[in-house]
Design a protein around this nucleic acid. Structure first.
Lengths: 233, 233
DNA sequence: CGAATCCTTGATGCTAATCAATGAGGGTGG
DNA sequence: CCACCCTCATTGATTAGCATCAAGGATTCG
């Protein structure tokens, strides 16, 4: 994954530290829960392959999906830094994770300021994505939200090297989209049908694909992702 | 502010570095904009006193307030780390800011890993607050959202040492609340009236005060803030 | 073949948006 | 000092967007 154009180049000693920092790999099945709200995980993970999502639940079961996780994303940082996980993470597809020891995070901060900075970069980027999602859920109409979300996921996936030739199969159900947008399942379905009818997306066999990104961006009123090189811890 | 029970103790050399890191103080009037979306600010700030809010705008003027900033909060980190501000910040009251040089952030990371860790802690905490706000806007009803928001602001302010004897005057208009909750001004007013009638909050002269925190928490279905010691950069 | 999961569609009702208007301070300039 | 304006809060009437209810179809899997 490192050679991908999206990722910054690392120093040899940084790579060496990361290799030592790494504890092992974890394979998670589709639908399994990786991290649970309220738990104290001794680990921190980097996604090597697959898709997942972060979410929170209300006591009565209402679910809000906060963001999606894709290869290169760090998960469990909040739990490592603040003690207790405040959200859960579930696998959308089979997931391979690189496992890190939470306790070694302090060592990373003292010995590798460049990597520490990268971690802050990732945290900052997550915040940026959340800001945009909150804007969407709070102020955009149903169709704008749906268009924004799909364009956003599509762009992120493309930037991370997923899919082939501008096409990405997004492994998601309409229930996930509904829980991300803060809409009901039924209304989400009706909204997505409109996008399909306008020919901007296609929906097939348990997933979705963006057909016309430009039109999707236009509907959402969003300008698209604009990230330079990013770190990969 | 440092002696407050909410903040962690620092080492003398850390304090010394922070003092050198500090560039000066900035006084901002109520209603003024501190940081603008799209700009490249050479500075990073810590709030010394006053209230403000972070927000984003859609091209047609719809506004979403993302979070509130209070004494001890760091603002502009996103801009410093990722280059361009992706949100704006406006002063809700008169604001005094401690100004830091963006360029010295790298030096901080190399020489003071403890402080670097603190900055990540703060970023992580911001993410946690955003997660909770997103859950609120996406999945809670109007009255739950309003109750949650006011309880949340109240608790944060109390934890930061604002107000006296469990009472805090929150310097906010109903338009701000509406733009935070993703509701219209009219509906927000009607919802707040219900909270006033139930005797859980009071609304007076351009602000709001929580009267019965327990009942407010009950209405919102939220369990309250639970932070231990926090850093203050 | 029955069960489970996911998608789809129509009917109905409620929550919240929009429209419209009024009132209560506070500040400013004549 | 008062008339005017501006901001903010408030309230009623109407409309629209979305939720909820209900049911059925398609596909996969054991």
């Amino acid at each position: 994954m490192r050679p991908l154009p999206a990722f910054r180049a690392f120093e040899p000693e940084e790579l060496e530290f990361i290799a030592r920092f790494k504890r092992g790999e974890l394979v998670v099945d589709r639908g399994a829960t990786v991290l649970v709200e309220g738990s104290h995980s001794p680990h921190l993970y980097t996604v090597l392959s697959g898709w997942g999502f972060r979410f929170k639940l209300l006591p009565d079961g209402r679910r809000q999906i906060l963001n999606y996780v894709m290869p290169g994303d760090l998960i469990g940082l909040q739990g490592s830094i603040m003690g207790e996980m405040q959200h859960s993470v579930e696998a959308l597809s089979g997931l391979i994770l690189c496992v890190f020891e939470r306790d070694k995070l302090l060592e990373l901060y003292s010995k590798h300021p460049g990597l520490a900075y990268d971690i802050t970069w990732l945290a900052s980027r997550e915040e940026r994505m959340l800001d945009e999602n909150l804007l969407s859920v709070g102020r955009r109409s149903a169709i704008e939200r749906a268009a924004y979300l799909l364009a956003f996921i599509h762009e992120r996936a493309r930037a991370g090297g997923l899919g082939t030739r501008s096409r990405v199969a997004i492994p998601i159900t309409q229930q996930h989209i509904a829980d991300t947008l803060g809409l009901s399942l039924v209304h989400t379905n009706k909204t997505l049908r409109k996008l399909v009818q306008r020919g901007v997306i296609e929906w097939r066999d348990g997933g979705c694909e963006v057909v016309d990104l430009q039109k999707l961006l236009y509907i959402s009123g969003w300008e698209g992702l604009d990230e330079g090189k990013r770190p990969l811890v």
